[in-house]
Design a binder for these strands. Structure first.
Lengths: 232, 232
DNA sequence: ACGAACTTGTGCACCCATTCACAAGGTAAA
DNA sequence: TTTACCTTGTGAATGGGTGCACAAGTTCGT
């Protein structure tokens, strides 16, 4: 199955992990990597790696493995990371500031080009090199910088309003850190990350294991990644 | 069903959402909530709510719904949130500081009681009310505050060492924000959250949807900016 | 007391993802 | 060339999760 078969959601969620794993091979190094090695680098098992990659095409060589550079190129192409998707961060509180500064975003093709906040003391200034605008400037900021993704890091009570404004400005990809359910049109892609929820899941297992006196009752815990809900 | 049947992982991951949804009902308000309402509050569908709750027990009343207070109590009990699980944050960079300050953690029973960093300028001082210690103090900090969860917000190259030290100190629940695969013993519960990975998943859909408009499926339109820059 | 209108709890069918197991294809050395 | 040994790619089995559809149980109005 070549170029354009449907790629399962679970596979899409793992592609970035493979790409990340390939970072250990220098670009242009002509290295080959087996599904077993890549599995270790990405924290999954080898069968999954092979099946996932088979959805993209037949890029490996039997008896040898995958060419690291070529694989990197193909996964990048599938993910569209050759593109750069500018981000606007909404809400410059603790979390917003940390996200706006997060070097890992720009490195992966998601530069933070602007921030939005309602605090008059922040509007018009630069925080850590990021220009902060008021909510009313959102549409023009989006147009000017060709913003593709909005991050919501506002207090929960402002989150829905912020989402509405992002949608009005034409944004179709939103990542929210607000601990509430947001309503957006069907054509908007929303991923919600609730850090407290993640901790509570950890807490559940903690609770269980301490109850029993040590052994992890819930079968064996393992690998996780997570998060978010995918719409279309 | 009954009290302690195995609760599916997918259900455990949603219980915190239900709990969060129940926040709209004042404590002691004697309100009842239907699966439909709770579904809307949690962002899932009603059938899932009913099935999930049935794993905890039969807490609803047919024709009526669920008693909000009772349901809150039972979900809390299942999750073990009646307990308080102290947290130590490792790495007080941008993200670490934001997490250490995040009010949502303490509200949900996960107070940040200490922080660890290697920077001599930070060790021994308080940052936003959180005492910062050096790595060597980890074991004593864990013992003294009865720390149950460790958060890794260090640079990627320090993450594995930090994980090892947390494990040595007796921590069995770890949440990592470092973009690498961490190796921990089987009895340690590890949740990895990679924010850049999340964005790349959004990027995949963006890429796909924008391709449909443009006539080129060959993927030539993209700038061939490189692809895998920074090493680990 | 009775029927209409609700809402839960759950059996069941379906779907997606994971994992196994192996044939197909490739390398290397004698 | 032949043999021994790798590793991919993929049918097929397995397992978990989702959602439908409906019987069972409750409330309310008449």
């Amino acid at each position: 199955m070549n170029s354009i078969g449907r790629i399962p959601d679970a596979t899409v969620a793992r592609l970035p992990l493979y790409l990340r794993g390939l970072d250990v091979f220098p670009v242009g190094g002509a290295a080959t990597v087996s599904s077993e090695e890549l599995a270790a680098l990405a924290g999954v098992n080898a069968a999954k790696v092979r099946k996932d990659l088979s959805y993209l095409g037949t890029y490996g060589t039997r008896g040898v493995g995958y060419d690291a550079d070529f694989l990197r190129f193909e996964i990048s192409r599938a993910l569209g990371v050759a593109n750069t998707w500018p981000i606007v961060v909404c809400g410059m509180g603790n979390l917003g500031r940390a996200l706006a500064n997060h070097s890992g975003f720009a490195e992966r093709g998601f530069p933070v080009v602007a921030a939005i906040d309602t605090d008059p003391d922040k509007i018009g200034v630069e925080i850590d090199g990021i220009a902060v605008y008021g909510p009313s400037a959102l549409a023009s900021v989006v147009a000017k910088h060709d913003v593709a993704v909005g991050i919501i890091a506002t207090p929960p009570e402002a989150a829905q309003g912020t989402a509405d404004r992002l949608v009005d400005a034409g944004i179709t990809s939103i990542m929210s850190f607000a601990p509430i359910v947001l309503t957006v049109p069907d054509d908007v892609d929303l991923r919600a990350v609730d850090l407290a929820t993640e901790l509570q899941i950890l807490g559940f297992h903690l609770h269980r294991s301490r109850l029993v006196g040590g052994a992890d009752v819930s079968g064996d815990r393992e690998r996780d990644l997570l998060v978010g809900e995918g719409p279309v």
